[in-house]
Design a protein around this nucleic acid. Structure first.
Lengths: 204, 204
DNA sequence: GTCTATATACAGATAGAC
DNA sequence: GTCTATCTGTATATAGAC
């Protein structure tokens, strides 16, 4: 029986597979290449994972956990609403406009067609926690009487959708480089005032 | 020399390839399967297209043209701004939340990694015309003195981003069915009032 | 131009020695 | 458990008859 959590070869396989799936896409990476990169023999690879699909599941699960951790590090600790929103926005932007974030997005939506449980995993362990985190914060603002947000769920979705701005689609298509800090801040500074005005219906 | 525009076998090949690429993804469809579906022999297929990549380029080019036509049918003909925006929104929603729209999005962002010119084609013949169309309409509203929109480019992007609402990502991940007319209208009716309030800074 | 048949490469997965 | 060597299927692309 193999220890699932700390076996070094297993970890090496997952890390190599993650790197290569993100860089080249699931279909373009062979088990031979993964074995070479790990580096282990192909028999060892199949000793740890029954199939290439099983390896993908492990990779995605691992990836979601680490991505979620990145996002959840955006702590809401100020009384300044605008400051808190900027903090959440910045952590979102850093994640989504990273090489790994882009590649993960491509990987998830491409492969979830053939592996429905993969889409479920991504949504529940990635998108949903981020959305409910923001939604809960907006509800607290409602409860404090500082704002009256008619539909916090809609507002949370709108926030993340808006932050994609004019950058995300061209980046996904590979026709422009990833934005640097200045450009990401430009979008954030466009989005936040609009957001405060349009959705939050600020009372004060 | 083969006539590029009206050759029936060529058309049959492109149509079959488009259907299968959208349904199963570029990598999951073999030239054998395309030849069977067309139906032509594989030799004929290679007589019309030098490689599988060349066939993909033809498919994407053809697809962008037909998608663009769908969007451009949303004519702006009323004096009622809200009515016009709803019309644009509906045509966007019908396109993006269709099976072909979803599958095309997956295909474009997946394959543009390995074919950069494909991303360029999609952006220039698909996204950009839609964006500039809305942007120009917003500028006209500015010029008429009916609104004062600070940044029409930002506003155009925000409009389409917002319409993805809470539906698009789950649909892409395959964890919920495509929205019907009622659900699409629900999102539209959430987005439009917010948009008018937050971005357009309506003067009247 | 179109077909059947095939060349060549490489994929996922396994056998058997140690 | 790990390795080298291999099985089996299928992919892209082509040769040669008609």
């Amino acid at each position: 029986m193999i220890s699932k959590s700390i076996d070094p070869k297993r970890q090496a396989i997952i890390e190599a597979a993650t790197r290569m799936f993100l860089a080249h896409g699931y279909r373009n990476v062979s088990m031979d290449k993964i074995a070479q990169a790990a580096p282990v023999s192909k028999a060892t690879l199949y000793n740890h994972f029954d199939s290439k699909n099983a390896l993908l599941a492990a990779v995605v699960s691992n990836l979601c956990a680490s991505l979620l951790q990145t996002m959840s590090e955006a702590v809401i600790d100020s009384d300044d609403v605008e400051k808190n929103l900027k903090k959440i926005a910045a952590s979102f932007m850093d994640l989504f406009f990273s090489e790994d974030g882009m590649a993960g997005y491509r990987l998830f939506i491409t492969e979830s067609r053939d592996f429905p449980e993969l889409g479920q995993l991504v949504y529940e362990s990635g998108a949903l926690p981020a959305l409910t985190g923001l939604e809960n914060y907006l509800r607290r603002l409602n409860d404090d009487g500082r704002f009256s947000i008619a539909d916090p769920a809609f507002a949370a979705n709108a926030f993340f959708n808006l932050l994609k701005g004019d950058l995300y689609f061209p980046c996904l298509l590979g026709i422009r480089p990833l934005p640097l800090g200045d450009e990401k801040n430009r979008v954030i500074n466009e989005v936040i005032p609009f957001y405060l005005q349009g959705i939050l219906h600020a009372d004060q």
